Amino acid sequence: MNLEKTFRMLRKNWKLGKYRRLLQNAGLCAATACIVLLLVYFVRGREAEKEIEALRALKNQAAAESSAALPKLDGREVSGEYQELFLKNPDLVAWLTIDGTKIDYPVMWTPEDPEFYSHRGFDKKESQNGLLFLDKGSRINEYGGNLIVYGHNMKNGSMFADLLRYGKKSYWEGHKSIQLDTLQESRRYEIFAAGKSGDPKALPYGFTTASEKECRAALEGMQALSLYDTGEKGNWGDDFLTLSTCDYSTKDGRFVVMARRVK
Score class of each variant (00 low, 15 high):
47 E>N: 10
115 E>G: 12
83 Q>G: 03
94 A>V: 07
74 D>T: 03
119 H>V: 09
76 R>T: 10
109 W>L: 05
81 E>Y: 01
90 P>H: 02
71 P>T: 03
64 A>M: 03
57 A>L: 10
67 S>G: 08
54 A>Q: 11
77 E>H: 11
116 F>D: 09
110 T>F: 00
85 L>R: 00
95 W>C: 08
100 G>W: 11
81 E>W: 02
45 G>A: 13
82 Y>M: 12
112 E>H: 04
59 K>W: 07
66 S>N: 00
50 K>Y: 10
93 V>D: 12
84 E>Y: 00
107 V>F: 06
49 E>S: 11
109 W>C: 13
107 V>D: 07
103 I>K: 06
86 F>G: 10
50 K>L: 13
89 N>Q: 05
106 P>K: 03
113 D>N: 15
54 A>F: 00
115 E>Q: 07
121 G>P: 07
48 A>T: 06
77 E>C: 02
110 T>A: 06
55 L>Y: 06
45 G>R: 07
58 L>I: 06
50 K>A: 07
106 P>H: 04
68 A>K: 05
80 G>E: 02
87 L>D: 05
114 P>H: 09
75 G>N: 06
57 A>Y: 03
109 W>M: 02
104 D>C: 05
81 E>T: 12
80 G>Y: 02
109 W>T: 09
117 Y>V: 13
71 P>A: 06
120 R>A: 14
52 I>M: 14
51 E>M: 02
48 A>N: 15
95 W>Y: 04
111 P>Q: 11
48 A>I: 10
90 P>F: 04
108 M>T: 10
86 F>L: 10
110 T>L: 03
62 A>T: 02
55 L>D: 07
63 A>P: 04
